[in-house]
């Protein structure tokens, strides 16, 4: 069974938001809400300011806090690791929105919660998620974590460092940030 995951090389990312725009059109995300956004973090560096452009979205955690809190079973985790949501079962109670430590979920105006799906519908057709396909710098890599010969494992193996957000929470995000500009890892709140 595949275990889907993504990596984003922060050394390559210029924060252009091509991924975020592709996500809007691919998934018809309505105005005012978002599945994918860019955080630009500016910190003092050793000789000059350091800038991290960090795309953020649902991390499809190995231990997703959003799943157990869902009272209707609308939010679920697939065998291949994708954390998805069945909108027809969702009662928009907002429990998962609160439970997500990454603020990755939002209330869709159609009356259900929504978030990144890793473009599950494109995976069916053997295509990369829309954000990965379009990324002009090639910063995003998508693949199967179980596939030792695959491009995802290769990207992880060749990275100078690999980080996930809020590792202390034990959520085990399946979106890895590679080569954070700060020597000690991700900038911002971590």
């Amino acid at each position: 069974m595949a275990r889907y995951a993504m990596a984003i090389d922060l050394e390559a990312c210029v924060g252009c938001a091509a991924c975020a725009v592709a996500c809007v059109t691919e998934n018809q995300v309505p105005p005012g809400v978002t599945r994918l956004w860019i955080r630009e973090i500016e910190e003092e560096g050793p000789s000059r300011p350091q800038v991290e452009f960090r795309p953020e979205q649902c991390y499809h955690c190995e231990n997703p806090p959003c799943v157990p809190v869902c009272p209707t079973g609308a939010t679920y985790q697939r065998q291949d690791g994708l954390v998805l949501l069945n909108p027809t079962k969702c009662i928009a109670c907002g429990a998962c929105v609160v439970a997500c430590p990454y603020d990755s979920r939002f209330l869709h105006p159609d009356g259900h919660v929504d978030k990144c799906t890793f473009c599950a519908h494109r995976l069916e057709a053997g295509r990369d998620p829309a954000c990965v396909e379009t990324c002009p710098t090639g910063a995003r890599v998508f693949g199967d974590l179980e596939d030792e010969e695959g491009r995802l494992r290769a990207a992880l193996a060749s990275a100078r460092r690999v980080d996930v957000r809020k590792p202390h929470l034990g959520t085990e995000p399946r979106l890895f940030y590679l080569n954070a500009p700060r020597a000690t890892g991700l900038g911002g709140e971590e």
């Binding site: 955080r39 630009e40 500016e42 929105v97 603020d103 939002f106 209330l107």
Partner: peptide, 18 residues
């Protein structure tokens, strides 16, 4: 810190009254 496509993410969590 700047956010592109806006701060409503935090807002959503902070103001669940919405």
């Amino acid at each position: 810190m700047k956010l592109k496509r806006r701060t409503f993410i935090q807002l959503a969590a902070a103001t669940l009254g919405a």
